[in-house]
Computed example of a mutant assay.
Amino acid sequence: MNTTNTLSFSTEYVDLFEEIVAWIILCVGLPVISLACYALYKLIKADFVTPIYVINLLLSDLIQVILRVYFIAERFLDTKTESFKTMQHFFLVTVRFGLVASLGFMVCISLERYLVVSHPLWYRFHRNVKHSVLVSLGIWTLAAIYAAIDYNVLTSYIVFLPVFSTIFLLPFPLLVFLYWRTKQALSNTIAVSASEKKRIRGALLLVLGIYVLFFLPFTVMSFFVIISKIRTYTVYCVMAVARSMVRLSPLVDPFLYIFMRKSVKDTVEAFPCFRTLGWSLTSSGTQDEPSKAHYAAEMKSSL
């Protein structure tokens, strides 16, 4: 059993698998995230309470998705030059910067939903765009600090993996605690409507599910590799799948937009193409789009 840091097997098929995943991320993720950003922009125009953290989460996803272009094009570049190694390291660190920011905004989304239910009065008087923007800038700053340390210090895989894995593990207890506490608070409150409870619970469950399904496997495998020091082909393949799951997470984040709207009808009618095609869920079918005043009032009443 090989326990050294040098791979003694071919990675051709694993590399092909990761390239296919990169193409899927680019071809699916870019249009889906762009549509979600457009829909959130429509919420802002409707005087909706600005979903700052969801917008920033999608921006961090865009960074990861757009940079997949470089990793797809790597096979056509001269990999032996020093400039290639420098550029590759820079883009890898930038992707990690986006990942760290994503984790931060996932925690912020869960914390915000928790405050809405558990401390509604405090949240109502302290909620404003300025505070959300400042928190978001703080998340981006922390992610940038990590990226700077990663680029200049964590150049060795032996040093990088434990640090990165620990950062990945930190949100897990927070997300579980916020979901559990919010679920308890929802069951004990009568001030929140049943439909709003479903949206809050759904948003929290989606955030926790994204972490458990896409981030936790990589974290567990990383600690396994660090502790066991096993470098077999099987471990390498499982690690590649875990890495790919993390990279696929931006494809799921746009679904958070659904929990920003009151119903499926509100979700699909945010896109002009559905109205152009005659999509209508109203019983009368005589009104294609609500008035601007009604639309704004409806958005204010949702999450």
Rank of each mutant, 00 (worst) to 15 (best):
L67Q: 07
V238I: 15
A39H: 00
D253M: 09
Y38R: 10
F125A: 10
K265S: 13
R113C: 12
I55Q: 06
F48E: 03
S249Q: 05
L40D: 05
A144N: 09
L30K: 01
K265N: 14
L115C: 15
V163Y: 08
E19W: 01
Y179T: 05
V176I: 15
S283A: 13
R113W: 11
N152L: 01
L277K: 06
T234N: 14
K197D: 13
R113V: 08
P173W: 13
V176D: 04
L59R: 06
K45S: 10
P173R: 11
P272W: 12
L103A: 10
V252W: 04
A73G: 04
T189N: 05
G104S: 02
V163C: 10
V32E: 07
I167F: 00
E12I: 12
V159P: 02
V159I: 13
I44L: 09
V268D: 00
M221C: 08
M87A: 06
L92M: 13
I24H: 01
V133M: 12
A39D: 05
A101Y: 01
P217E: 10
R68G: 00
L256M: 12
L169F: 10
I158G: 07
A203K: 01
G202V: 00
T4Q: 10
M260V: 07
V264T: 14
I167V: 14
P250S: 02
T267W: 11
Y295C: 01
L142S: 11
V176P: 01
V192W: 04
F172E: 10
E74R: 07
S60W: 01
D150Y: 00
F90E: 03
T79W: 08
S165Y: 03
F215C: 03
K198M: 12
I149S: 00
W122R: 11
T166R: 14
S165R: 07
G202Q: 01
P250D: 05
W140F: 15
V129H: 14
L62W: 09
I226N: 12
R124I: 12
D266A: 06
G285L: 10
T81C: 12
S280E: 11
E19V: 07
V135C: 13
I20C: 00
R96K: 15
L7H: 06
V32P: 02
D288F: 05
V246Q: 08
Q184A: 14
